[in-house]
Each structure stands twice: as C-alpha cells, then as structure tokens.
Simulated assay, not measured.
Amino acid sequence: MSRQPDLIAILGDGISARCCTRLLERSGIKVGVDTRQRSGNPAVMLSGATLNLLNDCLGERLPTGQYHPITRRIVAWGDNDAVSVKHSGIAFGAHQLSNLLPQPVSDIRAGTAADFLVFAAAPFPESSHQSFGKRIGSAAEAVLLCKEESNACWIESLDSGWIFLIPTGYGQGWLLGVGDELDTLLSRSRYLQRRVVVAEPARAIFETAPRMLSRLSGPNWLACGTDAIAFDPICGDGTGQAAREAVLAAAVIQALTDRDCSETSRDKILEHYHSLLLAAMRRHLRLCVQFYTSGGCTPWWRQQVLDLIKGFEWCSAQLEKLPEPKYGLHNFRLIRRSTAA
C-alpha cells in the first residue's frame, strides 16, 4: 500500500464486522460495508465483561433487558459430580444478538474501489487455514424439563465429547454437542438426559476445533471474525474475542490513516496485527489443553489434547519468526509502547 487509505471496505456482517464498522465511523473514517451473509450461532451467552465491551465498541447500550438472565453455571466435568457456581450473564436465542446490533450507515455499491479491505467473512485473500484438531459440533433447540433451572447453564463431559446447555427462556434453550452426535451424547449423559428433551433434530452442524488463517493481514487488507480465527466454544469467549479483534482492527486502520505513517511503519503495524492474534490463539490453545486434559481420559479426550499441543507448538514457532510487538492499545488507539505510559 503506497498511500494512506481513504475508503475502508468492511466485508461481512458478524460481530467483528459490526463492531469494526461502528468504531471506524465514530472516528470519522469513511467506511463502506458489503454485508456478506454468514451463518450465526443458534444461541449465544454473554458475560457482563463481554456485554460491556460490545457497548463500548458500539458507543451505545444494547437493549438487553428483555433477554434471558443466567445466574448459575453447573459443571459436571471429568469424574466429578455436578457443581453449581454463581454466574452473571445473559442468553440470546438464534439471531437475537445480531438483530440488536446497529446497522452500518453506508453500503458499498457495485464497482466501488476501496483503498483497504477488512475481510470479516470468506472468501479471504489468504485462503490457507491452520486447524488445531477436528471435532464436529451440532446444536438443537431443547425443552427444559426442570423449568426451575431455567436460569442455569450446564456443561457436562462424556467419554466421547461434551454437552453445553444454554437456557434462552423459561423452559426452553439450546443444546450444543461436541464430539459424538448430539443424540448419542445425550443418551449417555448423567445429568442432562433427564433434564431436557430435544425439540427437533439438530439444526446446525459445524466444526468447533480452533483454527485460523495462516496470514491475517496483507499490504492492503486484514482479516477478522470467526471465519478468520475461531476459538473452541469450550471457553465460551467467542463473542468477546470477535469484539476484541474488531477493536484491534479499527485501531490498526486508524494508525494507517495517519498522514505521518510511512510505508515501513504500515508494514510493521500490519505485522503487529497478525502477531497479536497469533499470540491470542496460542493463549487460547493453552487454556483449552487444561480443559480437555481434565475432561476425560478416553482416547477421544487424549487425541484432543495432542492436537491442541501441536497447535500450541505451531503458534510458538510462528511467533519466534516475528519481532516483539512495538505497539499497545490505549483508549481504542494504537500507539508505540514507549509512549503508552
């Protein structure tokens, strides 16, 4: 890229795309949006911290009062009995969160030339993905038989996978099964089998293993969102990660639009973006290893751990080739670390 970008094109319509668009619009940068369709999560649960981050990105409070509160998390992991702990969050049914997010101000017309592209959905300029394992997930609507537990989410490990229950209303919710088929997992459950009934066959089948593009930035583009870098749902941080990617992407673009930004600096800033997301994936894989190590001792669980360790080692090898990050985020802006204080 030989000059500062004047028009930024956002390609996508997920959490990252919406948040990045709003952050750039608020900073006065000209943005065009191509709302490529993508399949959203059937249900999602947000922690208080993630909700606050979304509000900060959007510059307004999401009208969440009508959505379902989650006050407990019940965990039955490994050989341990179920344990209930306090939890503060809200749950959304299919497409509810997406419908709450503000629409972009401007759309890209056919033939419009942009100076910089933000790919928040496929296809990407760099199409090579690194996948850190293989474990299929499926989701289905469920009826809660214990309606008094409608404020509690559940996670339960089994010999060949795990199940996560998100209540989305009184007596209703969504089941996510990872590993074996959802019906098979539920039939082997110690707890959830007698608490839920699947309302209809699984409506969504998808890959849940962590994965990312081999390159997340180039001379006039960067990639973000769950199509570009996806976390394992076991950590329950997918929406928060998507928002953090948007914050970083918007900060990078704002730095690129600085008229004093040299071509050398632009290259370093884009390399910084790729490096930080690579480091985020490595941290995520380390955390996943802890969960999968304690989830069970069958061959299925051991294979997941081996795949995650290989992914961690791959990320470490890639980071060793990159320089130490020279920038930091401060008030949604990218600044040199020497001046961050």
Results as ranks from 00 to 15, higher is better:
Ala82Glu: 11
Leu248Cys: 02
Gln172Val: 02
Arg195Trp: 04
Leu158Val: 13
Glu245Val: 03
Glu320Thr: 05
Cys235Ala: 13
Lys326Pro: 00
Asp180Arg: 12
Met281Ile: 12
Gly169Lys: 03
Leu7Met: 06
Asp34Leu: 14
Ser138Phe: 02
Gly78Leu: 02
Gln103Met: 08
Leu185Ala: 06
Gln130Glu: 14
Leu51Trp: 01
Phe291Lys: 14
Ser338Lys: 11
Gly173Leu: 07
Ile205Asp: 07
Tyr327Gln: 04
Pro63Glu: 07
Tyr327His: 15
Asp227Ser: 15
Ala121Gln: 07
Gly328Thr: 12
Gly238Glu: 13
Asp115Tyr: 14
Leu117Ile: 14
Val85Ser: 15
Leu54Tyr: 09
Glu313Ile: 10
Thr50Phe: 00
Asp107Gln: 10
Val85Trp: 00
Ala140Gln: 02
Leu277Tyr: 11
Leu24Trp: 05
Asn99Phe: 00
Leu287Pro: 00
Leu185Gly: 09
Met1Thr: 13
Gln130Ser: 13
Gly238Phe: 07
Thr298Glu: 04
His284Thr: 09
Gly169Asp: 11
Asp81Tyr: 02
Pro325Arg: 03
Val289Met: 10
Pro102Ile: 03
Leu256Lys: 01
Glu313Ser: 12
Ile335Cys: 06
Gly28Thr: 07
Arg282Cys: 14
Val198Arg: 14
Glu60Tyr: 01
Gly161Asp: 03
Phe119Asp: 13
Asp159Thr: 04
Ile29Phe: 03
Ala230Met: 12
Arg194Gln: 13
Arg190Tyr: 09
Cys57Phe: 06
Pro219Asn: 13
Trp300Asp: 05
Asn151Cys: 09
Thr339Phe: 13
Ala340Arg: 08
Ile335Glu: 07
Asp183Ile: 12
Asn151Glu: 05
His272Ser: 09
Trp154Phe: 15
Leu23Gly: 09
Leu145Tyr: 02
Ala9Glu: 12
Leu165His: 03
Pro102Gln: 08
Gly225Tyr: 05
Leu117Glu: 13
Glu148Ala: 12
Ser316Val: 01
Glu148Asp: 15
Ala341Asp: 10
Asn151Ser: 14
Ser275Gly: 10
Gln318Cys: 13
Trp174Lys: 01
Asn220Leu: 05
Cys235Leu: 15
Asp307Ser: 13
Asp258Val: 11
Trp162Ala: 06
Val198Ser: 07
Leu270Asn: 14
Pro325Gln: 00
Arg215Phe: 03
Ala341Phe: 14
Gly240Tyr: 11
Glu126Cys: 10
Leu23Thr: 03
Asp180Lys: 07
Leu185Phe: 06
Gln103Asp: 06
Asn80Leu: 03
Glu324Leu: 12
Glu156Tyr: 13
Ser128Cys: 07
Ser16Ile: 06
Ile163Glu: 01
Cys224Ala: 10
Leu176Ala: 06
Trp300Ser: 04
Gly311Thr: 09
His87Ala: 08
Ala279Lys: 09
Tyr67Asn: 05
Glu25Asn: 08
Arg3Trp: 08
Arg18Val: 01
Pro299Arg: 04
Asp81Ala: 15
Gln130Lys: 03
Ala243Phe: 03
Phe231Thr: 02
Ser47Gln: 14
